[in-house]
Design a protein around this nucleic acid. Structure first.
Lengths: 251, 251
DNA sequence: TAGTGGTCTAGACCACGTT
DNA sequence: ACGTGGTCTAGACCACTAT
């Protein structure tokens, strides 16, 4: 009983643990509401609001809780967006969809919005990925993906201008099969891909772009694709709302 | 000039942006020290320490800055740990290493510590993954991975007891080639794998386990492996320090 | 031992969503 | 109009680290 340090665990951690235990035990199963306000929790636990906010921020980061202004604190209803790598990369699969990713959205729609297209000289990173001289011309396609009217991903593609000039890849609507189908028609079907990814916290600008809470991590992904002649044909930089996706890889 | 809201961006964001710009511009390139204390920044920017701490927390989350007690704030020297999925899953590769992951640590060593092994009844999640009846016996192998004396990953493996009983898989040292080599000897070579992953913020207990800052996200990965007869032979639950890894997938 | 980062309190103001 | 979450201030104490 004795011998322990006076403050083994901070108060905000105790509060977070208590709330987490109640959530996983299903205490708020009815309507999912933990509390009607931070002040209510402040009174309940006898802690300053700042301490309550630390505890709640912790739980928001774990993806368990979300705050709704003027309504209160709620258990997050988690319906992850699956993003599965293809098990077999057959040509038929390529032609069928916009993406090489087999998205099972459980009835929900993935919508593309805010498409921006421009031609510009390649930054060093992009030039290196695509095997171009620095300043070589590339087409840049930026867009956001939405599920149920909420942004879940921001993606920017770069393609060598010399490769795709005049094709529908330089237009907003790339046509059936999307960019990969057009690349195939141009004799540069992507057959090999490499993705690199890491999690991190978003900048303020990125939080705005994806409408994220301060505590929500993002997944930064860079994919480069090559054709059969080992020519790099596309580089895609993606930013995913980390609280909404589950990525699957089969190998 | 007029017409804008009084406070378009919070003060802590302005401060974070200013520091971020200085870092990326290389202002602190010499010793990497941004400041000798939070109080110094508080005086410099004319903001309360709480506001400074918010800005610094933001930058810690982005992986740009780290705090060292009694020493100050420093630019994070980022040397990511690459974790690459195999391009070809040949038997030869299996036999050579402890892991199916081709780790290029740039001279650094990946050390396994704190190995814990026990036999127990499978939890529902584990039972489902391995196709066992709930409560069926499994061997559980938990361990931490260290790079340069610092923990970077925590992993827990589950294997059906009926499959691995009596093999070195139930011992601390599994021998050359590790678990997969032993499974192959037992006639259950893993030939197919599926990984699912998502980023999130760690709990307090997980922060302790991996010695993480409050703002560092983790990567939660679950891998299930099957043998040629489509029998599930292993489930691995991994928790990675998100600030230290870059994951690569080829397909 | 001095000073630091982590924690906590008790206030306050504001923009904005709900009512 | 009211109350909320987000922001900010100005204090304070503590454990721990460097010296």
């Amino acid at each position: 009983m004795a011998g322990q340090p006076k403050r083994p665990t901070p108060r905000h951690e105790e509060i977070a643990e208590d709330l987490r235990a109640r959530i996983t035990a299903g205490d708020y199963a009815e309507d999912g509401q933990l509390a009607k306000s931070e002040d209510e929790l402040s009174a309940h636990y006898g802690a300053a609001r700042g301490t309550i906010r630390q505890a709640v921020a912790q739980l928001r980061g774990e993806g368990l809780v979300e705050s709704r202004r003027s309504k209160g604190l709620f258990v997050t209803p988690w319906r992850p967006i699956p993003r599965n790598s293809p098990q077999r990369l057959s040509v038929e699969q390529w032609g069928s969809g916009q993406s090489i990713w087999d998205l099972d959205l459980d009835g929900r729609q993935l919508e593309v919005k805010d498409v921006q297209i421009e031609q510009l000289p390649a930054e060093p990173n992009v030039a290196r990925s695509l095997g171009l001289a620095e300043g070589g011309l590339v087409w840049r396609r930026a867009r956001r993906f939405f599920v149920e009217e909420r942004p879940v991903q921001y993606a920017v593609s770069y393609l060598p201008a010399g490769l795709v000039e005049g094709s529908r890849i330089t237009q907003i609507n790339t046509g059936p099969g999307g960019t990969p189908a057009r690349l195939k028609e141009l004799g540069h079907e992507p057959v090999r891909h490499r993705e690199e990814l890491r999690p991190r916290m978003p900048t303020a600008a990125e939080r705005e772009l994806l409408q994220l809470h301060r505590e929500t991590p993002v997944l930064e992904i860079v994919r480069v694709s090559w054709d059969a002649a080992e020519t790099a044909v596309e580089r895609v930089e993606m930013l995913l709302d980390g609280s909404r996706y589950v990525l699957g890889y089969d190998f």
